[in-house]
Every structure is written in structure tokens, then in C-alpha cells.
Design a protein around this nucleic acid. Sequence first.
DNA 1: CAGTATGTTCAGTCAATAATGAACGGTTGG
DNA 2: CCAACCGTTCATTATTGACTGAACATACTG
Lengths: 158, 158
Amino acid sequence: MNRNKPIKSAETARADFIEKIGMIAQSEGLPRIAGRVLALLLYDGERVSFGQLATALQVSRGSISSSVRILESQQLIKRVAKAGDRQDYFQVVNNAFANMVEASAARARLAAADIEESLNEIPLSETGARERVASYAAFYRAMDDGLKTTAEALRNNK
Amino acid sequence: MNRNKPIKSAETARADFIEKIGMIAQSEGLPRIAGRVLALLLYDGERVSFGQLATALQVSRGSISSSVRILESQQLIKRVAKAGDRQDYFQVVNNAFANMVEASAARARLAAADIEESLNEIPLSETGARERVASYAAFYRAMDDGLKTTAEALRNNK
DNA sequence: CAGTATGTTCAGTCAATAATGAACGGTTGG
DNA sequence: CCAACCGTTCATTATTGACTGAACATACTG
């Protein structure tokens, strides 16, 4: 009966994966197209051209442009050249996942600093409030630490 | 000169903190009002009534209703009673930050499972793609682990 | 040099979602 | 019992941000 293993073609599996990562990316605050680009590059493994991305994902070149810029800025993909082709090519960088985690750590660090700045504005007389706000900052510091550890683990354990 | 310590009143510091957390919450995918509610409750430390929240934050009661429901569902605040007052009161729960981290861990776990499901649809012949998709799933598993560790640390170290 | 390909930018459109405020059901106190 | 109060729900509005597509600047090719 094969109830547990509905057979799918390689093509369908690839398309499903790309769409799924698109949704996950969206839920994490990235544009959906950026997630789909990353998924496509990850799945295919080899360099893919700017034009191929646009046609494969059925989106405008403008969207590809902004998406790859976001992914580059987060150190998840890199732009590479291909001899004899004027187009830009892209591929996933080494340790992309570790970089992803480190970006989260950086955000946590920023939030911590932000809250600590608020803390400095609170009069010393407000001991209770100061303590509670400080614990909030400490929470973000703990996030930063934990994420850095995870990033390192991903880098080594790879 | 006092350039480093612009003096602010306690009221201003409180308002700034609340607004700041509102923005951070927004950047993390929560409604801004929910972040402001959490910040107010954290800053004040004691139970605050439904009506006080609406007037203090200058938002509709409908917004308060949905915000507190979100925060309750994430185990960040709880609804408490006050003798002689029909209103609902709210306060931050113990270990709220640990709960916050655990919610993130749960999301990572979900994403991992989601990707592993995709992995099972990829034909065994696609060895390269399977390997890369598996590494993506492993990334989310690592996030789950790391976040669980951070949550525990927050729970103890508190 | 002319013509074409390439990636970026930006104004405009559209969809998703946050927030409002009125209507509602349920509870309480007088 | 009823009047006031309380929290939720839901239709509507406002806002935000992704996406498009055309205009543009640049670089290559023949």
C-alpha cells in the first residue's frame, strides 16, 4: 500500500523543499523569496546564475537582486563568476548555518545593549525596576552567549 | 557638563523603556502592543489591571485583549485576581525569559521536523541534495539543543 | 561605436496583519 | 431585576513591507 512513502519525483521533492523553506524564512522575518533562493542554492549545491534564479522561481529580476543582496549581507551566499558568462552566479558559503546563528547572536547583543542603555536612564532610587530591567538585559546576554556556543559547535562539528 | 548622563525623570525612563521593548518585540514578530504590555508589567513589577493597561498605553481594549492572550499563550504573563475588583489583573510569570527561549526552541524543533519530512521525499539517488538538506535539518536540531541549554541556564542561574 | 545583456533602483501595487471601536454575552452589585 | 461593567469578537481601517516592472547605469561584444 505504501501509505508511508508516497512516491515523488526528484523534481517535486525539490520544489516542495524550496517552497517550504520559503515559508520558514517568512516566519523568521526574511522575505519569502530570499528563503526560496537560499533553498534552491542549497538543494542544487552548485553555482546558479542570476537569470536562472529568476526563471526557476518565477519572480522578477528586481526581487532576485534584493534577495541575493540580503543573503550576501548575512553571509549565507556568495557571488561567484563563471568563465565565459557575464551573469553573476551564486552559491551557498561554507558554514552558512553557523553564520546564520551568529547573526542571531548579534541581534541579541544589540537588544541587550539597547536595554542596558534604557537601564542607565532609570534613577538609582528605582531599585525594583532597575533590577527587573537588568534581568531582561541579562536574558539577551544569555541568548548571545548560547547562540555563540551553538555557532561554534556548528563550525566544528561540521 | 554631564554629557554622558542626561538626567531623565523616572516617568520618562519608564516610557522610553516601554516603547523600546515595543520596537524589539516588533522586530521579533510579535505585535508591538504585546511588547509594550510586557514591558510595562516587567517595569512595574506588580499586578496591573486590564483597564490600566489600556489607558496607560493609550490603546483600545480590543488590542489589550488580544495582546494579553498572546502573552498568556506564550507563558510570559499570567492573569490574576484582585479582591474587590472585577477587572482582570496581569503580571509577569516566574521564569518568563526561560519560557521565551523554550518557545524559540520549540519553533526550531518544528522547522527541523518539517525539513526532515522534505528529506524523506527526496529519492535516495539524489545523494548530494539529500546530504545538504540533512545538514539544514541538523542546523535546526542544533538550534533546538542550544536554546534548550540556554533556557535551563536561565532557569537555574536566576 | 552601436547594440545588447546585466544588475540595481525606485515608484507604484498588492497582500498580510496590526489596531480600532462598536456590538455582544456574561457577570456583578445595588 | 436591571444597570453598569468587563472582556471578547468581529467587521473595518490603517499600516507595513514584499513584490513588480520599467527606467537607468554600466559593461561587454561584435
